[in-house]
Design a protein around this nucleic acid. Structure first.
Length: 410
DNA sequence: CTTTATGCAGTAACCACATTATGGG
DNA sequence: AGCCCATAATGTGGTTACTGCATAA
């Protein structure tokens, strides 16, 4: 069975666009994603060469194949045959890099027979959606000329790549806390550890901070952050939330439900560039992603965290498309992630998970939104006031409820 | 498949009145 | 500026009624 480009149906698909949920050949990828500013921001990565349906997560250097998480797990973690294979993280990119640029980023891209294919490149030349600019995104380039190419640390030959700095950016997954990735070779081993530090507060990192998707992450307007006992949800693996764990996000564990939102937003500015938050694009993305799910989403996120998988870009009112954009469809929110490695699922102690679900449900049920009493004196007054069907009654009138005594006057 | 009934969860409204805020002298 | 007084506005908790949604019949 051939895995052809979803767009032209002719070339072999190489790139997977999460936003479009489509597998594209290089030509169509550039064609489609140079259409407008929004499409340019679509986060793409290689398509899994095994299942050809999921975005690639790592590349097995030994087998020279790009694999999604599921296939990677099946082929490596879940297999006794090739567990020691060296793997390399496959990053996401956005913008409209050429095939040559991509091959500079992913040297292994040359393994693909269609890369560099003349007809493919010619097809790019005959793009019908192009504007007059030889290399798109010039406008934004000028506007965002402060952007730095340092994020291209994953590239083997960063300095040789003269790509549009404003439109192409790689997303590091180096800070993944996925133990299964411990064996992943961090592409020339280079900038992995230092890379996140480039995004510290103050150090403007436009490719990250100016990305609307990233801001969406901090769109707290409608986010319910009423995690009553988040350490119960997330505490099993505090490392997932950076060095400071969950406290690194919320600042204090004693933060009330109402305060969390504000504090979160307040910290968001620093978090955005600090050690906690990183924009991520995929299911292979940073576990430092944002906690901004509502109700049941908490559980799902918790599951993601527990399984060392994560996603970002979820806002309280995220749509299905948003989830898709993160490499996770909305469907799993109602149940099991379809791409969830069966091995993990089966190996995960079902009892512990059930316990976690039970605990979550209990907490959710018992959760009460703390009401902040502004005037304790009024509360004290109300606490002793007699009522009729819950309503206050005049002093001396008949009442059916007396907080001071269960007796009734009538 | 559509309609109706039922259950559940969430929320606004209600009450009296002490407390608080505001403005004028 | 500081004080006093009158008036208006606020907020407090338990209960009910209402609404919207999901599910079953």
């Amino acid at each position: 069975m051939g895995y052809l480009c979803d767009f032209c149906g002719e070339q072999r698909s190489i790139i997977y666009c999460r936003s479009d949920a489509a597998s594209l050949c290089l030509s169509c990828d550039r064609n489609v994603h140079s259409a407008n500013a929004l499409s340019k921001r679509h986060s793409r990565t290689l398509v899994c060469e095994r299942c050809n349906s999921q975005p690639a997560f790592v590349r097995c250097i030994e087998e020279k194949v790009s694999l999604c998480q599921n296939c990677d797990w099946v082929g490596h973690a879940g297999s006794s045959i090739s567990p020691g294979h060296k793997r390399q993280a496959v990053n996401c990119y956005s913008g409209c890099p050429s095939a040559a640029e991509l091959s500079s980023i992913w040297s292994f891209l040359l393994d693909f027979p269609s890369v560099g294919d003349s007809t493919c490149e010619q097809g790019m030349g005959s793009m019908s959606i192009t504007d007059n600019r030889p290399m798109d995104c010039q406008g934004s380039h000028e506007k965002n000329n402060v952007q730095d190419a340092s994020f291209l640390g994953e590239a083997n030959n960063v300095h040789n790549v003269e790509m549009d700095k404003s439109t192409v950016w790689m997303e590091s997954v180096n800070h993944l806390h996925d133990p299964r990735l411990q064996n992943v070779d961090q592409a020339a081993g280079s900038t992995s550890s230092a890379e996140p530090k480039d995004f510290l507060p103050g150090a403007k990192e436009p490719a990250v901070c100016e990305d609307d998707d990233f801001y969406d992450v901090f769109n707290m307007d409608e986010v319910d952050l009423s995690i009553e006992n988040y350490e119960e949800l997330f505490g099993d693996n505090p490392q997932l939330f950076g060095n400071d764990g969950i406290d690194g996000i919320f600042g204090t564990k004693d933060m009330s439900a109402s305060n969390r939102q504000g504090a979160y937003a307040a910290e968001g500015s620093s978090i955005g560039g600090a050690n906690v938050m990183q924009p991520a694009c995929s299911n292979a993305a940073s576990a430092d992603s944002v906690i901004s799910c509502k109700t049941d989403s908490h559980l799902y996120f918790a599951r993601q965290a527990h399984s060392s998988l994560s996603f970002s870009g979820l806002t309280g009112e995220s749509s299905a498309g948003d989830y898709q954009d993160c490499g996770v469809s909305s469907k799993p929110m109602m149940g099991e992630p379809p791409w969830y490695p069966p091995g993990i699922e089966s190996s995960m102690p079902s009892t512990s998970r059930n316990d976690a679900v039970m605990r979550y449900k209990e907490k959710k049920k018992a959760r009460k939104f703390e009401k902040k009493v502004r005037y304790a004196s009024r509360k004290a007054r109300a606490d002793v006031r007699r009522r009729v069907k819950g309503r206050f009654v005049k002093v001396g009138d008949a009442y059916d409820y007396d907080p001071l005594s269960p007796s009734r006057s009538c």
